[in-house]
């Protein structure tokens, strides 16, 4: 089942072209990894896919319905985004932040009830932050903030999960355990996942498909084994790559 599709989409921002005539489908059960050099437009593309920026050319459909036909709040029940950084201006607690993920499910005037608190508590347990519910978020470390942002997304529980460098600030153990956790949640929601990553080996370990953004004209999409190859990666990063095989997984390293 197709959850998200784009047809003939061209995006340019600040005079720089990011993609031209991109066609792409995100189907249920798929996990896409987006790879590309710095400044190629991965984050921008992600924001367009999330419907946060208005498309000038082409069409984006979510569940077969064009983006413009969606109400913001209904859309937030279908599409969730993990941004690269989190901002905060005023003091707020870990629990309040996690609860914000329930916003799309509640009427405007309503308070969060026991159900919402139970969902948020469980998500904080999932990311191993159960004992930090009352902490102010400006006292958290970078990795803890990242885990809180992931918990908030778990609370939001969308079907389409768009993640921008989810492993930023995370230590080696949390990189693996949180990606496994996210994949469990996506599977449970019968959803799909698309994430921007810089680590080719995480992509080949966790993703079913990959999108290689070489430049605006050349965006290579397809199943992971066809797309993530030494030749393609060398083209993508303009750097010689070496690859080794182990446990049925291919690992890539820069020369």
């Amino acid at each position: 089942m197709t959850l998200l599709s784009v047809a003939a989409v061209s995006i340019s921002i600040g005079g720089k072209s990011i993609c031209r005539d991109l066609d792409f489908e995100l189907n249920q059960g798929q996990r896409w990894g987006v790879l590309g050099g710095n400044g190629v437009g991965k984050t921008t593309l992600l924001k367009y896919l999330a419907g946060l920026l208005p498309l000038a050319q082409g069409e984006l459909q979510i569940h077969g319905k064009p983006l413009s036909a969606w109400k913001r709040k209904a859309l937030a029940r279908e599409v969730g985004v993990l941004f690269q950084d989190s901002q905060d201006t005023f003091p707020t607690t870990v629990m309040e932040t996690a609860l914000s993920g329930r916003h799309p499910y509640l009427p405007f005037w309503s308070f969060e009830g026991e159900t919402e608190i139970a969902i948020a508590s469980q998500a904080l347990v999932d990311v191993a932050m159960a004992d930090m519910e009352d902490r102010q978020i400006d006292t958290l470390s970078g990795g803890e903030r990242r885990r809180l942002a992931i918990a908030t997304l778990i609370v939001q529980n969308p079907r389409i999960w768009l993640l921008d460098e989810p492993t930023n600030h995370l230590d080696l153990h949390h990189q693996i355990s949180l990606l496994e956790l996210i994949i469990d949640k996506v599977t449970a929601a019968q959803g799909a996942l698309l994430m921007v990553l810089h680590d080719v080996n995480l992509v080949s370990r966790f993703c079913t498909h990959a999108m290689l953004m070489v430049d605006a004209q050349t965006i290579i999409c397809g199943p992971i084994h066809d797309v993530v190859t030494r030749q393609n990666l060398e083209l993508l990063y303009r750097h010689p790559i070496r690859h080794i095989q182990g446990n049925g997984i291919r690992y890539f390293f820069p020369e």
Partner: peptide, 20 residues
């Protein structure tokens, strides 16, 4: 709009992604 205002303090993008 109180709950939407809460979300706006997390930044425009985050608020929009949560349905504001």
């Amino acid at each position: 709009m109180a709950r939407s205002l809460n979300l706006l303090t997390y930044g425009d993008q985050q608020a929009a992604a949560l349905g504001v």
